[in-house]
C-alpha cells in the first residue's frame, strides 16, 4: 500500500503529472479577483476566505478525472482490481486518494497563505483559512474519487465529474468558509463549523472510497 502511495505521488511530480496544473489555476483565479473587484481593500479582505475556498475547490477538481483514468488507459486498473483479495479495493482507492491529495491538493493549501496576501487578509484570517483548507480539502478528493470512478470509462469524463461532484462538495465549502469567518468575526463561532468540517472529511473518507470501489468493480470491461 505504501508502494502505491509512493508510486502515485511520484507520478504526480513527474512530467505530465497534475501537481502544477492545479496550483497555476489557483494562482490565476486568485490573482484576477482583485482586478475584477477593484481596489476596495475592505471588500477584498472580507471576501478573501470565501474566494480562497472557491479557488481551492475548483483547482482541486481539475486533476480528478485522471485519478483512475490514467490507470485504466495503461491497464494498471485491471491489476489493481485483480488484487482485490489481497488489498481491499476500497482501501486501494483510499490510498490513491491520499496520494492524489498529497501531490495535487496539499500544494494548494501551502500556497493559500501567500495568495491570501493578494486579498489583503489579516494574518489570523489567513491562518484560519489555511487550517480549514487543510481539514476540508480531503473531503473534496474523497467525493471526487467516487465521481472519477463513475466516469472512468468515459473519454471526456472531466466535465461530468465536476457536475457530479460539485453539489456534494457544497457542505464542505459552507462549513469551511464559515469556520474561517468565525476565527475573525467575533460573534460567529469557529470551533463548531470547524468540527463539522472535520467530521465531513472523516465521513467521506469512508463513503467516498467505498462508492468508488463499487463503481470500479461494475465498470471494468
Amino acid at each position: 500500500m505504501l508502494a502505491l502511495f509512493l508510486r502515485d505521488l511520484r507520478l504526480s511530480m513527474r512530467v505530465g503529472g497534475g501537481a502544477l496544473t492545479g496550483i497555476v489555476f489557483f494562482l490565476a483565479v486568485i490573482a484576477t479577483i482583485p482586478f475584477g473587484v477593484g481596489p476596495d481593500l475592505n471588500l477584498l479582505s472580507r471576501i478573501g476566505p470565501a474566494i480562497l475556498w472557491i479557488g481551492a475547490l475548483l483547482a482541486s477538481l481539475l486533476g480528478l478525472d485522471r485519478l483512475f483514468q490514467a490507470d485504466r488507459d495503461d491497464g494498471s486498473l485491471d491489476l489493481l482490481v485483480l488484487e482485490a483479495d489481497r488489498h481491499m479495493l476500497a482501501l486501494t482507492v483510499l490510498v490513491k486518494c491520499l496520494a492524489h491529495w498529497t501531490g495535487s491538493v496539499l500544494p494548494l493549501v501551502v500556497a493559500a497563505p501567500l495568495l491570501g496576501l493578494f486579498m489583503n487578509m489579516e494574518p489570523l484570517a489567513i491562518g484560519a483559512t489555511a487550517l480549514t483548507l487543510l481539514a476540508g480539502t480531503p473531503a473534496i478528493t474523497f467525493i471526487g474519487a467516487a465521481g472519477a470512478a463513475v466516469a472512468v470509462a468515459l473519454p471526456r469524463g472531466g466535465l461530468l465529474i465536476s457536475i457530479l461532484v460539485l453539489p456534494l462538495t457544497i457542505p464542505a465549502l459552507i462549513f469551511g468558509v464559515s469556520a474561517s469567518y468565525g476565527a475573525t468575526e467575533d460573534p460567529a463561532p469557529f470551533l463548531q463549523p470547524f468540527l463539522i468540517l472535520v467530521a465531513l472529511t472523516l465521513f467521506l473518507a469512508v463513503i467516498g472510497p467505498l462508492g468508488a470501489a463499487l463503481a470500479l468493480r461494475r465498470t471494468s470491461d
Binding site: 505530465g16 503529472g17 488507459d73 495503461d74 494498471s76 485491471d78 491489476l79
Partner: peptide, 8 residues
C-alpha cells in the same frame, strides 16, 4: 496493455 507507467 502492459500496465506500466511511461513516466517511471
Amino acid at each position: 496493455l502492459n500496465a506500466m507507467k511511461t513516466a517511471l
